[in-house]
Design a protein around this nucleic acid. Sequence first.
DNA 1: TCTCTCACTATGGAAAGCCTAAGTCATCCG
DNA 2: CGGATGACTTAGGCTTTCCATAGTGAGAGA
Lengths: 173, 173
Amino acid sequence: MSDTPDRVRFTTALHDRDAWSAAACSMDRAVKLIGKRSNMLLLREAYYGSTRFDEFVRRTGLSEPVVANELRHLVEEGLLTRVPYQDAGDRERLAYRLTDMGRDAFVPVVALMQWGDKWLAPEGPPVELSHSACGSAVTVSVRCTEGHDLTVRDVTVRPGRGATRRASTTSPH
Amino acid sequence: MSDTPDRVRFTTALHDRDAWSAAACSMDRAVKLIGKRSNMLLLREAYYGSTRFDEFVRRTGLSEPVVANELRHLVEEGLLTRVPYQDAGDRERLAYRLTDMGRDAFVPVVALMQWGDKWLAPEGPPVELSHSACGSAVTVSVRCTEGHDLTVRDVTVRPGRGATRRASTTSPH
DNA sequence: TCTCTCACTATGGAAAGCCTAAGTCATCCG
DNA sequence: CGGATGACTTAGGCTTTCCATAGTGAGAGA
């Protein structure tokens, strides 16, 4: 039973695991960009509907300097945009709104939430997500385009278009 | 067009966003546990088949002290186990193997990888994942149990079993 | 026994991430 | 004009996260 290795498979090009590096790994880049707690919390609040500075401060529990800094970064990196708006009898303000890039990060955020619900919340999940239209529960899953649900063992890894274009740290010849 | 808010909906119990806190958020817990770069890289290498200390060091590019520390943490937290093994004519060693908890973290890891592929890899993804059995591409998606693909806007949030059990930081009465 | 490798541990230091507390600045309200 | 408010910035400090370098200890092979 412990004979089947608990890992992905590789195509022949990648079979020698020491002959290529994962230095340009997209997950690594993603973690460097949005992997920190402050960014994740800010994104969560954006999904929960926050658009204003003080909402983000109040609802994430982060300090003002951190929120100011990280919101600026998220805007620079393209996950949020500032759009001006004006409430009645109030001066013009800026709202932080999700871009497509920020909206897409909903998937990893919910994936982490789901994993935390399963493994770190013995008393049950603090919040539950459902599909507004049909009411059934929300799950994040790894699937192929044919619709099969996949685990680590079902996946094969092969080099992509961006492979070793740069960062061919290893394999000199 | 910018009229539809780009966020989840809430059930009436959560409608006053300032009357409840997301302090016990599962995503926050998950990020605190596995959100750091070193942990994510170690998990990636575990999915790529690494089991030994020196493999993790070589393939993540992390330093030995960090790998030693983080592997210990991952074992304590239950994502990995150490199992003894012995190669022919070699002394007994310990291999780090994924537990169910660690295997489940494949979902957020691949979700981050996919997001990075889409938004941070203009030259194309460094590696591509496919379903070994049918060959079609791998995707991570947020769906309901009825099979509908969901975005932020399609999701409703309601309090779960673990809500305000503790951490009812707000709503004093 | 001597050396080698593997799997660590110890030490010291740079950088990042977060905090509190205290401004700043523009605008609106009275 | 004077105070309140919202959205920040500045200053200073603590803690975590990483790194590099240099050990240590245990078993295998010569």
